[in-house]
């Protein structure tokens, strides 16, 4: 986010903030919505929505469904070997 020194000194701070905000607004309001309409991106978003996935979850408590032990797992794995 640093401008080359020559340019930075000639642009007033308020204008620099305005320019940065304009760039961010253009990216979020124009570029990203356009990217979202690309078929591959749209397919990914729809798949995630249809499966109730929240890919931005930082930890498990933010997921739509708590990842509790799946019912099938004990038919597939020996979770705690008994030695028998």
């Amino acid at each position: 986010m640093t401008f080359p020194p020559g340019i930075a000194h000639t642009i007033p701070p308020g204008l620099r903030l305005g320019l940065a905000m304009a760039i961010l607004a253009a990216v979020w309001l124009v570029v990203l919505p356009s990217i979202g309409r690309y078929p591959a991106v749209d397919r990914h978003v729809r798949l995630m929505e249809s499966r109730d996935v929240n890919p931005s979850a930082m930890v498990y408590t933010e997921l739509e469904h708590l990842p509790l032990r799946p019912a099938w797992i004990e038919h597939h794995l020996v979770l705690w070997p008994t030695g028998n």
Partner: peptide
């Protein structure tokens, strides 16, 4: 900003 769909569904937290 993080809630925009493309950002959100590509995990840019």
């Amino acid at each position: 900003m993080a809630a925009q769909k493309v950002i959100n569904y590509y995990n840019l937290e």
